[in-house]
Amino acid sequence: MASSHETPKKPDERPGKSLLDRSYLVEIGKGLANTFMHMIGGSQTVQYPERTIYDYSERERAIGHENPRSRGEHILVEDELGREKCVACLLCMAACPAVCIFIEPEAAPEDWKDRDRRPKTFEIDMLRCIYCGYCEEACPCDAIRLTPKPYTVTTSREERIYDKERLLKNNPGYQTPQRPKK
């Protein structure tokens, strides 16, 4: 059987040892092309603190979105007419083990045919909330939901108490899809 030894290559035939390889011109060109493609490829930055990776608009990053059932900050759901769905039944307030929800009901306007009451104030004290999700379970109208957004940056305790407007606008992507009434 013939020897399978390969003849040793001359120095110039070894990979990376030719004159062209050692001048690095080709590789520098490749590097420049690579950085140029990155230059026109768009940015990966999330404009924190205006936006966070937990926002609905950033869900394609799949950071903080692995589990859609993870429980974060609440959102008050709007109906098709842009009104809050909440009918101020106070069931969430009763279900809350941390006593962080405060609702003051008032009579709904005359032309709101589908309900008698609506919340005048709807406040959640995010410092007390334990993100258990009982409010979401208690709600008969799918008016309150927990989104995957775990936190929002604030600079004072007062800002941690979210009022109705704040809750309606919190992480607006999770308004959709509208779930059917229970």
Partner: peptide, 10 residues
């Protein structure tokens, strides 16, 4: 700016 674009930043 250009360094940021190359590194996929803003």
């Amino acid at each position: 700016k250009i360094s940021a674009w190359i590194q996929d930043r803003d």
